[in-house]
């Protein structure tokens, strides 16, 4: 069996760490992992995505995911969840942060962009009970560090059960991926939302 996960957001939100944690936890269980990351020019405020694929032994050749193949979309920004939604399986899960990141172009042109219509669309499209809307920024801010947004959202994603990984699986590998002095903070963030 292969689990396909799409992580998406805006450059600088920390999608790469979340995908490394998932990969480390999956490898610890003996699974094979592949992922594709956005690196380069798009990181400067552009939309970024990662594809992560976890196999328990089934043949897997490429790190990329096709339309309608994702078991779970983990979105750091609601508009980006909508952008990547075509990749979701019919009964797939969507975990989305609720805060919109406004692009500079929208500020300049005065054109409106809000989270509201994005979340409404997700509610219509995602199967009942499979959409989780998380105010990850507030949760991270409450911990005193907005940078743990990624781990807050990852916690919510793991608790859906759709990844074939448990909370313990992730907590066990945090020490391998995250620096000692940030470990406690990240452990708290992971179990928060």
């Amino acid at each position: 069996m292969i689990k396909n996960i799409v992580l998406c957001g805006v450059g600088g939100q920390g999608t790469v760490l979340a995908s490394k944690l998932l990969a480390a936890a999956a490898m610890e269980k003996g699974f094979t992992v592949m992922s594709a990351e956005t690196i380069g020019m798009a990181q400067r405020g552009g939309n970024v995505f990662s594809n992560i694929r976890i196999s328990d032994g089934e043949a897997m050749y490429a790190p990329m995911i096709g339309t309608g193949e994702a078991d779970l979309i983990l979105a750091f920004e609601p508009g980006e969840a909508v952008r990547m939604l075509p990749f979701l399986k019919e009964d797939g899960f969507v975990i989305t942060n609720t805060r919109a990141v406004k692009p500079t172009t929208a500020t300049l042109t005065g054109s409106g962009y809000d989270a509201g219509p994005m979340l409404e669309y997700l509610q219509k499209k995602v199967a009942d009970g499979h959409l989780m809307q998380v105010d990850g920024d507030s949760a991270a801010a409450a911990l005193g560090n907005p940078r743990v947004l990624n781990v807050v959202l990852l916690g919510a994603a793991v608790r859906t059960g759709a990844l074939g990984l448990t909370e313990e699986d992730i907590l066990n590998v945090m020490g391998k991926v995250i620096k000692e002095k940030f470990l406690d903070l990240n452990r708290k963030a992971f179990t928060l939302a």
Binding site: V10, G11, M41, A42, Q43, R44, G45, G46, N47, G79, E80, V82, R83, L85, K102, P103, T104, T105, A106, Y113, P117, M118, E120, Y121, K124, K125
Partner: peptide, 12 residues
């Protein structure tokens, strides 16, 4: 349902 307009995010 038709998706809402998603903003373009050119690198800046």
């Amino acid at each position: 349902p038709q998706p809402p307009t998603i903003p373009i995010r050119p690198p800046v």
